[in-house]
């Protein structure tokens, strides 16, 4: 039994993707356009700034949100990154992470709010989120390349798919965790549906939503190396180049850069979430 393939799903999927590529590629390229614009905007902005200004800005932000320890750590990390010769790659990675997070928030928060308020939508969207989080990213890299071609923007698109679920999930969770009695109280005082959302549910869900944002940022960072496989630049590329040429040192400094960035972004966003609490 089961010695032969009965359902040629692989063939069907290939046919389907090929048909999309042949006939509707222009649609996908149009979808890519806003992502590309955002990405290049942020990237040019970051690279145009003097590194010192970027460092000062990050240090001030960390100081305001997370206190002097994180601030000190951030400044040391950024200086080390610069001394390791990773500055430009780091800025590209930061731009990619920021633009994918922007799109994740734009799409994820409204979807999460809707899922939080509608059980049916939550049931509908949950298996899709599971699939997005568990499907190995290599599986969708090929169709992404076929539909969107290679480069930073395609890398951002792959990153969006991978890092979108946590913000949807945690936004929904946050909305659901708002005590029913508070919603009832707001309704008793004449709140409309929209007022319940804006004046009660979203403010109270904010810490959880920010925790989702933190998760999304972390997931986006972890996609940097994978995105480098489809020609995206940034801190992933020294790792890939190092791997291909067995240059352990090069791969290692790329890894160090990613770790330092991850810790920085994590501390700053977590502190922001806790401040809201």
């Amino acid at each position: 039994m089961f010695e032969e393939q009965v359902i040629p799903l692989d063939v069907w999927i290939s046919t389907c993707i090929n048909w999309l590529v042949d006939n509707h590629r222009s649609i996908f390229l149009k979808l890519k356009w806003p992502v590309e614009q955002t990405l290049t905007g942020i990237e040019h902005g970051l690279n145009a700034l003097h590194p010192l200004i970027v460092i000062i800005a990050v240090v001030l932000l960390a100081w305001r949100l997370a206190g002097w320890r994180t601030s000190l750590f951030s400044s040391c990390s950024l200086i080390l990154i610069g001394l390791l010769g990773l500055w430009e790659n780091t800025m590209i990675t930061l731009a990619m992470v920021l633009s994918s997070v922007i799109f994740c928030v734009i799409a994820g928060v409204p979807l999460g709010i809707y899922a939080g308020r509608s059980d049916r939508f939550e049931q509908f969207i949950r298996p899709m989120l599971d699939a997005m989080q568990t499907t190995p990213s290599f599986v969708y890299l090929v169709p992404i390349v076929m539909l969107f071609s290679i480069g930073n923007a395609a890398g951002v698109l792959a990153t969006i798919i991978f890092s979108l679920p946590p913000i949807i999930r945690l936004t929904s969770l946050g909305i659901r965790q708002v005590p029913q009695e508070l919603v009832e109280a707001a309704e008793a005082f004449g709140a409309t549906n929209f007022q319940v959302l804006v004046k009660v549910q979203i403010p109270l869900a904010m810490p959880t939503i920010l925790a989702g944002l933190n998760q999304t940022i972390m997931m986006a960072l972890s996609m940097v190396v994978v995105a480098a496989l489809i020609g995206a630049g940034g801190l992933g590329s020294p790792v890939i180049i190092g791997l291909n040429s067995l240059d352990i040192g090069l791969a290692a400094i790329g890894g160090i850069g990613i770790v330092l960035m991850a810790v920085m972004l994590d501390r700053i966003t977590q502190a922001a979430a806790q401040k809201k609490n």
Binding site: P179, E181, L182, E184, A185, K199, V200, P203, L204
Partner: peptide, 8 residues
């Protein structure tokens, strides 16, 4: 309300 239901 019994539970006060104040907005925290």
């Amino acid at each position: 309300f019994q539970s006060f239901a104040l907005m925290p």
